[in-house]
Design a protein around this nucleic acid. Sequence first.
DNA 1: TGTCGGTTGGT
DNA 2: CCAACCGAC
Length: 673
Amino acid sequence: MTGGCSIVWFRRDLRVEDNPALAAGVRSGKVIPVFIWAPEEEGHYYPGRVSRWWLKQSLSLLDSSLKNLGTSLITKRSSDSVSSLLDVIKSTGATQLFFNHLYDPLSLVRDHRAKEILSENGIIVRSFNADLLYEPWEVLDDEGRPFTTFAAFWERCLSMPYDPEPPQLPPKRIISGDVSKCPSDTLVFENESEKGSNALLSRAWTPGWSNGNKALTAFINGPLLHYSINRRKADSATTSFLSPHLHFGEVSVRKVFHQARIKQILWANEGNKSGEESVNLFLKSIGLREYSRYMSFNHPYSHERPLLGHLKFFPWVIDEGYFKVWRQGRTGYPLVDAGMRELWATGWLHDRIRVVVSSFFVKVLQLPWRWGMKYFWDTLLDADLESDALGWQYISGSLPDSHELERIDNPQIEGYKFDPNGEYVRRWLPELSRLPTEWIHHPWNAPEFVLQAAGIELGSNYPLPIVKIDTAQTRLQQALTQMWQHEANSRAVLENGIEEGLGDSTDDTPIAFPQDMQMETEQDNLGNRVTTTIRHYEDQMVPSLTVTTSLFRGTEQEEEEEEESSTDHRNGGHDDRRAEVPDDDDMNLESGREGIQSVIPQFNNQIDLRNINGGGGGSHSPAESSSGTSFRRERDGVMVPVWSPGNSDTSSYLQRHPQSHQVINWRQLSQTG
DNA sequence: TGTCGGTTGGT
DNA sequence: CCAACCGAC
């Protein structure tokens, strides 16, 4: 209660309301709110342009709110958050650090380290739950193990013996600590060339926690009622638009949950079945967000590697040309192309269309899913590592409850489902705007005179399908056969006693991917030479956004690959081509495997986050949280993640799903050859 | 009002 | 694949 001054370390909890770390700081006395911008720590997942734009706005609004309450946000530019925290502590004399939990793999490691180092320095460190209804370690099955399917997980969440914490009001006043010796750094979130593009974003979006609350209120009192009816429409006017707010923690998910629940009770009492169902469906999407954190916590590799191990044997098509065509929205499938153009133009995509384009990516083009995930990361306004990883894993059939890999959704049929009148396609594909609805989702079947009347010349101003669906289906079958064979071979090798210990962190599979490829050298739009190199690799490669040098002051990433830095000059040319689609100059290739190790080397060791807490009594076992209806959580950060290394083993994950359709399919495939 | 096939949706 | 749903008997 007394004495020292505390640092409240803001990250993706950019709100003053229902912010347990901030509340704890206020309770304990003087507060210094700090935000540290250390993008180098994110490795591959350096935030994309639109995401950085959002963050910039959000921080500025948070700062004004804090100023109204009596303090202000200290901002630090850093390449190492923990040492920056130590600097702030030294220059302010703070004695405590409070922050809210994050669950992405990088944060789990960094925050663990922060707790360790700061505790060693005599700082009291406490962390809290601000991002979830329940902490991942609270939600366990009857045997005390983490759930491995969504439905069971969510059912348990909805029937926990205690409700999620009700949202807290913002503090009335914050007493500021002494920051006279702790100047803020100016944070640069966009370069000159990005400013023009970003200016457009502010017409459509208003970041910040108070705007997030407005969006929530508007949604709850508006589209929520008809959510169940409208959710199939590609036309995104009926979604909540809360995801970017939730990603940055501007809106408390618990507030969202409580408000939706209140509506649900109201509608249930009125006998409004459709409204009640709408809330269920909306809450389910909140549940998926919860589940993404849950999966990330329990399987901290899920953004890099498939949960079900067989997928690493899938012979991905390593084709940059396909990848480019997909990004540019020139696949010849109108629904896919419209989605990709919308994504590029706005940073936004309706959930359904995300599924369409990503499933096309994986199943028709058979490109490595991590490429697609990375592109989403770079372009989505609500890019969110955990959610996106879950989504792509679901799409690519590597979750026990996901879509089957061999089932290709036909974009033509999906088109008439989600965009029955073709309005969405016409909005984003002006070249098809005069095509009648009858042909809008399959122009390749349209009679010549229809195309002529619509001013379309297939293969010229709109492409023919890049891959026919039945061709894709055949290719996919072959690929799957190959995958299961490789998987079986690998299993045989493992059973013969080859080492297994490294398996989880390094993908040292005896069966290497066969692809060695020669990338061609080509010119990008601006006449820069784009050079890619011959590469051998055993895992899928991940093209990564070449980081804009002007945003970096500190050290370059310690990738030993010269190509990485040699491509940097290309960024100079990455300008304001807003109306255009992304081009290759955004991307370069690097081996995912080296990437993994350089980003999160700690995962090669066993990690245990137990009891780093300064608060005493902090150790917390899963059994404790699941036992007893009288159990009541404290908000005071006494609980810390207990992160069992065993859980992150994908082979055990597979073992827990002997009935999964993947295994059944494997048997079928082996029989048929 | 039951149940049978076909269809649809599914994290 | 499998459950839920729907319309036809």
